[in-house]
Structures are given as C-alpha cells and as structure tokens.
C-alpha cells in the first residue's frame, strides 16, 4: 500500500472513531449510516460482483433480527409469555442478562441468516436473471408475512426488544461502536474475499456463467457461498438494528422491503455496482441526502425513492464510482487482478 493510501485509511479511521464524540447528537444517525454501508456492501456481493439481482436480501436482515431477539429474550424468559401483549410488562432484564443476551443474540443472528442463505441458495440459485430476482422478491416479502402470522414472536404487533441498561447517551455510543465495527468488518472481509480467487469466480459468473462452468469453475459452490457471506453480515446488521430500534415490527422493520430492502439496491447502484468503494460512497451519499431532505418531502419521500431508482437506472447506471472510473481511468482504475 502506498503512503497516500495509508494516510487516507488513517484519516478515515480517525474520523470513524471521533465522529460520535464530535457530533454526539447524531450518534444514532451515524450508527445507522454504518448499517446502511453494510446493507449496500452485502447487496453488491451478489448484485454487483456476481451479477445476481436479489430483491429479497432483506430476508436475512429480518431473520437475523428475529433470531437475535428470540435468543436475547429466550435465554432468560419464556418468549411466548414475553411477547404476549397481556403480560409482557413484568419481564425485565438485569444489565448482566442484557449484555449476555445481546452477545448470544449477535452470535445467533449471523448463524441463522447464514443457514437460511445456504438452504434458500441451494434451492433457488439455479435460477437466473428475472427468475432469481422475482423469486427473491417473493422470499423477502414471505419472510414478513410469516413473521406477522407467527404469534410466538408477537405476530403483526411486533417484538419489543430488551431495554438498554445504561443511560441514553451511552446507548447511542454503544450501538455506534457495534455498527461501525460491523461496517468495517464487512468491508474488510469482502475486500479480502474479492482479492482472492473467490472474487475472480464471482466476476466470471457475472460475465458468463456457462463459460465459467466450461472452464471448470465450481459455480454452484461459489454462488451459494457468496449469498451465505452476504447473509452472515446482513444477519448481524439486523440484530444490531433491531436492538437500536427497540421495536421489531415484522413488515416495517424486520422484513422492510419498502425501505431497507429497496435502499440497499439503490445505494449500491448509486455508488457504483461491482466496485469495492461504490456501495460505501452510495450509502453515505444516500443516507446524508435522505437525512437532510427527507423531512422536507412531507410524506412524499417514498415516492421520491421510486423516482430516484428509475432515474439512476436510466441515466446513471454506472453509479458514482463507475462514472469516475470512466472519466479518470488512471485514478480509479479497475483493480487489475494479479497485478499485486
């Protein structure tokens, strides 16, 4: 790595660590930003790097969220009693129970999400193009429908997460630290993976899956593994967001196709599909814009979101980094694999 690179990474690290202290009022927003970065990055693994458009990755976000919730509560109480609207008020957690439960939840979430991705991947990753896209669209929504119909986890009225034992300001910092660690870990893990033969295989599948098979690439294994990796981090993101949000609502929070589910697609495309930094840039630009202007749209935000997707797909399909790379090929040149 060049000195400039080190300097850049150092500055970013410093900024990451300092941000919640510099802007304490925005700590929760900043934590959200890291969640968004994670969502965009994990979408891009399939959508950008592998060329498989998933409209239902939100499934793993939701699964992680519920898995964590069930474990966090289930370790100490009866979940059904806890979610029962009649008697939930009396069940509380000591600080020790809270942190223990959270740790276990953060372990269970990625495991559950990864297992789901392995199972669904084996089932539907033989589908391509629109078939895969629509199948995932269905899966994502089905997740919300099932959760909403499942009384054990509170059904449609949702799941109230255990309350953070510390004071309010510390809560924001705590979740900022969790979310930032997740975002950074996701970035690092994906960058590591993309730099291996695995990354070459992903790109080969994107460009011509049949050709890849004719060369002997283990496409089935790579595809399922890629979705599992993406689900692993999505599951963690779900677990952290569930706790940050406090209330898990099946259709609007956990399996929230109309918000997070769409945002992750949009952010990845906006920043530049199939690039390492594109999803990060896209997430930052989108999240900041969203927070700045969302309130002025007075309820029309989600309409604007639809317009935004259409406009970006039609007029800005390469995204910010894709365009930058085309304008200034030297500065933003494609990772020349093997150039080391």
């Amino acid at each position: 790595m060049s000195a400039r690179r080190w300097a850049l990474h150092g500055a970013l690290a410093l900024l990451t660590a300092a941000a919640p202290f510099l802007l304490p009022a925005l700590a929760v927003q900043l934590a959200m930003l890291w969640i968004m970065v994670t969502l965009a990055l994990t979408w891009d693994t399939l959508g950008g790097q592998m060329g498989y458009n998933s409209f239902g990755n939100i499934l793993f976000f939701g699964i992680g969220m519920y898995a964590s919730a069930i474990v966090q509560v289930g370790l100490f109480h009866d979940v059904a009693a806890y979610t029962d609207p009649a008697g939930s008020g009396s069940l509380t957690f000591t600080p020790r129970e809270y942190y223990l439960g959270l740790a276990a939840g953060l372990l269970a979430a990625p495991i559950a999400a990864t297992l789901a991705a392995l199972a669904f991947g084996a089932l539907i990753l033989g589908l391509r193009g629109p078939y895969f896209a629509i199948a995932t669209l269905g899966l994502g929504i089905a997740g919300g429908e099932f959760a909403a119909a499942w009384g054990y986890v509170g059904g449609a009225s949702g799941f109230l997460m255990p309350v953070f034992p510390g004071e309010f300001g510390r809560r924001a910092l705590f979740f900022y630290a969790l979310a930032a660690s997740l975002g950074i870990a996701t970035f690092a893990a994906l960058r590591w993976l993309y730099g291996r033969r695995f990354g070459l295989a992903l790109n080969a599948i994107r460009d011509d899956e049949d050709k890849a098979e004719a060369l002997g690439l283990p496409t089935v294994r790579v595809k399922i593994a890629a979705w599992a990796v993406s689900a692993f981090f999505l599951g963690l993101a779900g677990a952290i967001f569930g706790n940050l949000n406090g209330l898990i609502e099946p259709r609007e929070v956990a399996f929230s196709g109309a918000t997070f589910g769409v945002w992750m697609v949009l952010m990845a495309i906006l920043g530049g599909k199939g690039t390492m930094w594109g999803p990060v840039v896209g997430a930052v630009v989108f999240h900041v814009t969203k927070e700045l202007f969302w309130t002025y749209l007075l309820g029309w935000q989600r309409v604007a979101l639809g317009v935004l997707i259409v406009v970006i797909v039609l007029f800005f399909p390469l995204g910010i980094l894709g365009h930058a790379r085309r304008r200034w090929p030297e500065t933003f040149r494609a990772r020349v694999e093997g150039a080391a």
Binding site: F55, G129, W300, R302, G306, I309, V310, V313
Partner: peptide
C-alpha cells in the same frame, strides 16, 4: 430499457412499482 439487458428493465420497472405504490398511498 427495451432491448437492453434484462437487468436494467427489471430494476427500472421495480423502481416504477415502488413509485406507483407510494403514489397511491400518498
């Protein structure tokens, strides 16, 4: 998006679907 990659038309009509659903809601 006609004649382009199916990828593009999928995303574009997906965006339209969000747009119309939210418009109706609004």
């Amino acid at each position: 998006v006609t004649g382009k990659d199916m990828f593009v038309s999928l995303l574009a009509t997906f965006g339209l679907s969000i747009l119309i659903a939210q418009l109706i809601n609004q």
